[in-house]
């Protein structure tokens, strides 16, 4: 197997996704088949090749340091599933 059950469980933890006991075999299998397909990229030597991050062969544009964005607190907080008049609310964060 190109990817095993344990790896799938670790990936799920990182991605904040749950894979149930009944799904894990199928998920492991399907991810394995994708990895198998992906592995073709190792067929070519690319040692001297510069990675291409973006098709735009240009550089980052710079923005002047000005405040033009307005903030709409009531609008933003109204979109949240759980918020009061000041804060977004989440189950207590333990530090």
């Amino acid at each position: 197997m190109l990817i095993n059950r344990k790896e799938v469980e670790q990936i799920a933890v990182l991605a904040k996704l749950a894979v149930s006991e009944s799904e894990i075999e199928a998920v492991t299998h399907s991810l394995g088949s994708v990895v198998e397909m992906i592995n073709h990229i190792s067929e070519v030597n690319t040692d001297a090749i510069k990675p291409m991050a973006n098709p735009m062969d240009v550089v980052q544009r710079l923005r002047a340091d000005k405040v033009t964005e307005t903030s709409n607190k009531p609008q933003l907080l109204a979109m949240a599933p759980n918020a009061d008049e000041d804060y977004y609310l989440v189950p207590t964060v333990v530090e």
Binding site: I11, A12, L14, V27
Partner: peptide
């Protein structure tokens, strides 16, 4: 979507 998130997470890990 979950499959692709997992593939991507794996590829970057």
């Amino acid at each position: 979507v979950k499959r692709r998130i997992m593939i991507g997470t794996w590829a970057l890990s």
